[in-house]
């Protein structure tokens, strides 16, 4: 005689589909709330000056060599490509201008954002993830410290501050790299190069693209902190948080950049001084 069993009915296709899309949406909702809290906490007393400074040191200063080196390399490569193109039209004198446009308007901010999301995003994800799984975040809380305020807000703020600074650094080292490449080939003089580079730029080509990297910083800070702060599952969880921090903050950054570029173009129509 067969034994009667009362198993729950198998989930329908629709149900499992809904569940599979619900998880990422839930995750994203969590991220949005987390970001909102980060904004709120950034403006809440007490300001963790020491921690902000420490994070600025780590995120900003310690990234500087990476940024400068990459800037020099990117600048010289861009310059060489620009030369190859403009040479055909006999417009070599436009090289600094074209390079400055490319660097200051898009390449500088975007490359900085991606480099920092690699270096800092992974760092924050791993650091906070590690603190979470080794109960250091609990320890902080047990010591009557608001761990979100102390760990997350400070890092997000440091990212927001550091990104524009690093972008400026990237732009200038890129132009310098371009100058070295150009000077080697054509012996262009330094004053002419920099005069020509900034010759056709307007404030709207320089300030908004630099300022938009604050948004990049916020994205990198919140995404990686969210992943680290909510990590679970031991060392493996920490590794996952670290990797996902890089991947997701890079993707968010690239996607949001599209919106930002359009938004800047809307605010500052071409040619506006």
């Amino acid at each position: 005689m067969p034994i009667a069993t009362t198993q729950p009915p198998p989930p329908s296709v629709l149900q499992s589909f809904m569940e599979s899309i619900a998880a990422p949406i839930e995750w994203f909702g969590g991220l949005c709330l987390f970001a909102a809290q980060a904004i709120r906490e950034c403006f809440q007393r007490p300001f963790e000056w020491t921690e902000i400074l420490r994070q600025t040191y780590q995120i900003g200063w310690q990234s500087a060599p990476l940024i400068v080196l990459s800037g020099l390399a990117v600048g010289s490569v861009l310059s060489m490509h620009t030369r190859a193109t403009l040479e055909r039209f006999g417009a070599e004198s436009m090289i600094p201008t074209a390079l400055a446009f490319a660097l200051v308007k898009e390449t500088g901010p975007l490359v900085t954002g991606l480099l920092i999301s690699g270096r800092v995003g992974a760092g924050i994800g791993a650091e906070l993830g590690g603190m979470r799984v080794t109960e250091q975040i609990d320890a902080l809380e047990s010591l009557a410290v608001n761990s979100f305020h102390y760990l997350v807000a400070t890092r997000v703020l440091a990212c927001v501050v550091a990104l524009p600074l690093l972008t400026v650094l990237m732009n200038f080292s890129g132009l310098l790299g371009g100058f070295f490449a150009e000077a080697t080939i054509s012996g262009m003089s330094f004053p002419y190069y920099f005069h020509a580079a900034f010759g056709s730029l307007a404030f709207s080509d320089f300030i908004p693209p630099t300022a938009k990297t604050m948004v990049f910083g916020f994205l990198i800070g919140t995404t990686s902190a969210y992943l680290g702060y909510n990590a679970s599952g031991g060392a493996e969880g920490v590794g996952r948080a670290s990797t996902q921090s890089v991947v997701l903050s890079s993707i968010f950054l690239i996607v949001v950049n599209v919106v930002l570029v359009k938004f800047i173009a809307f605010l500052f129509p071409v040619g506006g001084a």
């Binding site: 600025t56 040191y57 900003g60 200063w61 500087a64 200051v104 501050v161 524009p164 600074l165 690093l166 400026v168 650094l169 732009n171 200038f172 920099f194 005069h195 900034f198 010759g199 056709s200 730029l201 307007a202 404030f203 080509d205 320089f206 300030i207 630099t210």
Partner: peptide, 19 residues
């Protein structure tokens, strides 16, 4: 670090403003 970057930013602004 912050000072130097702000200085560079200022130089950029000045060069464009000059232009």
């Amino acid at each position: 670090f912050v000072g130097a970057c702000l200085l560079l930013f200022g130089i950029g602004l000045f060069l464009i403003g000059n232009n």
